[in-house]
């Protein structure tokens, strides 16, 4: 592998650009695609693999190519730089999520509290407007403060986010659903919110609650989640 290719792959990942990395077997000739210098048939096959998010070996003519689809990593946007977020953010990062923690209270988002994790101090609705959640994005509200959580949930519900979770007891969630309903959100839309958030594993401590949320996120991504919402 050429160092310049490695750098190009890392830049694409950081900028959330989908690329295909094609390596000819066994001699190691390689392209980061799309690349105008690559053979036409390879460019076409790589585009197909990338669109299907498939990684594997293809025979193109007489040549064997290993084509790696490198689509942007799934993202998790956490609202509220609270204690549970300190456990959840690194846990989700270890599962391959690009994690952003949003909290306008600067003291909460310090690098000491979130080493190596991206943080934003915008108001959650502004932050979500900029981050533009797509179908590879999860939004989790943890702040317990309706002034932070509610606008974020309204933004999230208007997006294609594959998972929306809100921390809080059944009672808290019922009150939240009532508030969001009064703000004009439809009950059917609010059924997308996982609240209380997380799988029911009897979690008590912050790391345990983080684990239950992370497990629910994985279940959602792998198509194993049933949302049962009291809305």
């Amino acid at each position: 592998m050429k160092l310049e290719h490695l750098a190009a792959l890392r830049t694409a990942a950081a900028q959330r650009h989908p690329v295909a990395y094609a390596t000819r077997l066994p001699d190691g000739e390689a392209f980061v695609l799309p690349d105008a210098a690559a053979p036409e048939a390879l460019v076409a096959e790589a585009a197909t693999m990338l669109a299907a998010n498939r990684t594997g070996v293809l025979l193109i003519g007489a040549e064997s190519w290993f084509i790696e689809a490198r689509n942007p990593a799934p993202r998790a946007i956490i609202i509220g730089a609270v204690h549970i977020a300190q456990s959840l953010a690194p846990l989700l990062a270890s599962l391959g999520f690009a994690v952003v923690v949003v909290d306008p209270r600067r003291a909460f988002t310090s690098a000491e509290r979130f080493p190596g994790i991206a943080t934003q101090t915008d108001w959650p609705d502004d932050a979500l407007a900029g981050l533009a959640p797509d179908r590879e994005t999860a939004v989790i509200t943890l702040s317990h403060d309706p002034r932070l959580d509610d606008p974020a949930l309204i933004r999230a519900l208007a997006s294609d986010a594959f998972y929306i979770g809100a921390l809080g007891s059944r009672k808290t969630h019922a009150a939240r659903v009532e508030r969001l309903g009064a703000a004009g959100m439809a009950g059917t839309a609010m059924a997308r919110i996982c609240g209380p958030v997380g799988l029911d594993i009897g979690a008590v401590s912050a790391p345990e609650i983080a684990l239950s949320i992370a497990a629910q996120l994985v279940a959602a991504r792998r198509g194993k989640l049933r949302v049962e919402c009291p809305a």
């Binding site: 160092l3 490695l6 890392r10 998010n53 990593a73 799934p74 990062a93 391959g96 999520f97």
Partner: peptide, 20 residues
Amino acid sequence: MGGIGGDADDILQIAADWQA
């Protein structure tokens, strides 16, 4: 996960760091 595994991507970074 479906996209670039954070894990697999870290390996490329580690490789680059080691070479540097």
